[in-house]
Every structure is written in structure tokens, then in C-alpha cells.
């Protein structure tokens, strides 16, 4: 089975089996936006140096969400700032990632009624395989059972900054585990480090924003 893109794996990690988000949308959106940029970076289409994006290769990587970004970045010549792009991507990334997972048959739409009255729509995993697989890689890297590759290391970094460590079920204090996850990401390329650090910074700024 082919590996899912980072943003899709992160989406699955950040939701429970009922499709309920484990963290608030403002933080999750920023994490997903960082994940799309990491997908492009790890596939050699993009690099980040001192907060500036540079496109190296416009060949599609086979992910509709990530592939739509390259022309958008190339068209906006004046704006190559990583922070601005993460914020721009974050505006609709949640819905786009969810849509791409539905299109891939990983999620399915479920209509429910809360307390038998209030209509509620959830997007639940068709089965738990994809989510378990995504979590397993991060867990193995955090447990030091496997040497992570760049994809897994980037995912570790995002799981760390989004404080999603509880889904790994590792018997370690949270702060220690988050530190370990961030260290794993920090051992990889400069671009990965910069994107993860910028997501972390923007999550902090979003938390103290005047208006959401």
C-alpha cells in the first residue's frame, strides 16, 4: 500500500475513530498547512531558506492538494514568505485534506443526531488501517525501535508541535515525548526544521490573536 501524503496522515492522527478532532481547528489548520509544504519539500519540489520558499521543480507529486500549490507559489512572485504561505494555505487546508481523504476512500461521511435532535456530520475513517499505520511510524521512531526516514521525521515534528503525543500511547511524560519528537525532526534537513519551527511559532501567535 502506498504511503499517504503527510497532510493526510496528520489529519488521521489528529482525529479519533469517530472523526472528532483532538485539537482545535486553528492549530490543526496550521499543522496541516505545514504538512503540505513538507510534502513538497521532501519530494524535492520546494526548499525553504531563512523563511523564504524557493520552487525547484514544478512536476506534480500525485497529490491534488500539494500539486495545486506549486503554480500558486510561482504565480505570486512578490510573496515567498514561509509564514504568509502557511497562513494562506491554512485557510482552506482542513476541508481540502478532508475532501482528498474522502476521494481516496479513506474517510466516509456519516450523518448523526446529537441527543436525537441536533444534526451532525462527521467524516469517519472507513477502517482504522490508515490511521494506525500513520501512528505506528511515529510511535516506532519515538520509541527508538526504528530509524525514521525523512517523511516520518517530519510527521514526528508536527505531532510534537501539535501536542498530539497522547495518541501514541507511550508511557513517558508528555514534555519528554514532545522533546523527543521535535529532536527527531530537528535531525533532518534545514527546510524540515524551519517549517516545523514556523508552524510552532504560528500556533503560539494564533493562541493570542485578538480575533479568531
Amino acid at each position: 500500500m502506498n504511503r499517504l501524503p503527510l497532510h493526510q496522515e496528520l489529519y488521521l492522527i489528529a482525529h479519533d475513530d469517530d472523526g472528532k478532532a483532538l485539537i482545535q481547528r486553528p492549530s490543526l489548520r496550521l499543522g496541516l498547512a505545514g504538512a503540505v509544504l513538507l510534502d513538497l519539500t521532501l519530494s524535492g519540489r520546494l526548499s525553504v531558506t531563512q523563511g523564504q520558499l524557493a520552487v525547484y521543480d514544478r512536476t506534480p507529486i500525485g497529490d491534488t492538494v500539494a500539486d495545486s500549490l506549486i503554480p500558486a507559489i510561482l504565480n505570486d512572485r512578490a510573496n515567498r514568505d514561509l509564514k504568509i504561505w502557511i497562513k494562506q494555505i491554512a485557510e482552506d487546508i482542513y476541508d481540502r485534506t478532508c475532501g482528498s481523504l474522502i476521494a481516496a476512500g479513506v474517510l466516509t461521511k456519516v450523518n448523526k443526531r446529537r441527543l436525537g435532535m441536533l444534526a451532525q456530520t462527521r467524516y469517519q475513517p472507513v477502517n482504522t488501517t490508515a490511521a494506525v499505520r500513520a501512528r505506528a511510524g511515529v510511535r516506532a521512531a519515538a520509541d527508538r525501535r526504528e530509524e525514521p526516514d525523512a517523511h516520518c521525521a517530519a510527521l514526528c515534528g508536527l505531532v510534537g508541535v501539535l501536542h498530539l503525543e497522547s495518541v501514541l500511547y507511550i508511557d513517558q511524560p508528555s514534555s519528554q515525548l514532545i522533546g523527543r519528537l521535535r529532536t527527531i525532526a530537528g535531525e533532518y534537513s534545514r527546510s524540515v526544521q524551519e517549517i516545523v519551527a514556523t508552524v510552532d511559532l504560528l500556533i503560539g501567535e494564533a493562541a493570542v490573536a485578538v480575533y479568531r
Binding site: L22, Q24, R25, P26, S27, L162, I203, G204
Partner: peptide, 21 residues
């Protein structure tokens, strides 16, 4: 948050809850 992030106040004041943003 701004002063703690600039290391002018104790770091714990810059810590945020990601879960609730």
C-alpha cells in the same frame, strides 16, 4: 506571551495549549 517569548519573563508564560489554541 511576547515578553516571555523574548526571554524577558519566565518561559512558562509563553506556553500555550495547542488543544484549545
Amino acid at each position: 506571551y511576547a515578553m516571555a517569548r523574548d526571554r524577558q519573563l519566565p518561559a512558562f508564560l509563553a506556553k500555550i495549549s495547542v488543544k484549545h489554541s
